[in-house]
Design a binder for these strands. Structure first.
Lengths: 122, 122
DNA sequence: TCGTTTATCAACCATTTTGTTGATTACTTA
DNA sequence: TAAGTAATCAACAAAATGGTTGATAAACGA
């Protein structure tokens, strides 16, 4: 039997996917992909308070998607591409298996019956 | 200026990433990557009621990550690899930009100062 | 030191999410 | 038709999420 991580019971994956499930946080990711930025800089485009943005940043940091550094009174945020790569690796590990399944099924059906069967699903 | 989707304000992305931010739903995805299954089959490994699993399946379906079909009284679930591919595409679009930034910065710093600078962040 | 900038902490509220139990619908089979 | 199986609907409770306002801490600059 696969271990907990292989079955998907990883709290860090919970945090990372949850962090991406919000348009504000995805906007922060998009901005940070072009370089580091402070909370005030990140908050500027959004119609919410700086405190709310600060909370979003903590969600991203707890998920490991960003890191903070110190520059005087400023605490710039930096994207952590390695964490993003882990997410695509998780998704792709199942996507590729499923696509291989579909290819095998297509091949089998074509060999058994050249007539396309109608499936009740949409 | 990029449009709403490019900035990440896409409700479908919200649903898809939120759908993956739960260990039960990731377990369902993992199982479905090996082939279709019914609600009862999917519910068996989990210590929650069948109704709760049914709700999780609706979350995955609303996110476009799975589809349903009809087979008599059974309604099997099928993974939708194309939707998973869209998620990896979104993540990679920003990851790759950030990694290119880092490579440019590394090159610049190496050219300016061979001595590695200490950054206050972790 | 004093004022300003940067950012967080704390308390609170509305909404959403996740689970339960019990009833109901849809389909199959005897 | 009647019984059994597959799955959902409905109502409810507990917990988490996302936002606000107001107060506070930490570092800089004159």
């Amino acid at each position: 039997m696969p271990d907990a991580a292989a079955r998907g019971s990883d709290a860090q994956l919970d945090r990372a996917f949850l962090a991406l499930a919000d348009p504000v946080r995805r906007g922060l990711i998009a901005r940070l992909s072009r370089g580091p930025a402070t909370v005030n800089e990140l908050a500027e485009p959004f119609a919410i308070t700086k405190q709310a943005v600060s909370k979003h940043i903590h969600v991203l940091e707890a998920a490991g998607l960003i890191t903070r550094s110190r520059d005087g009174a400023r605490r710039p945020c930096h994207l952590a591409p390695a964490a993003l790569e882990e997410l695509t690796a998780w998704i792709d590990s199942y996507r590729l298996v499923a696509e291989a399944q579909f290819r095998r099924l297509d091949t089998l059906l074509a060999a058994m019956d050249p007539e396309p069967r109608k499936e009740a699903g949409q």
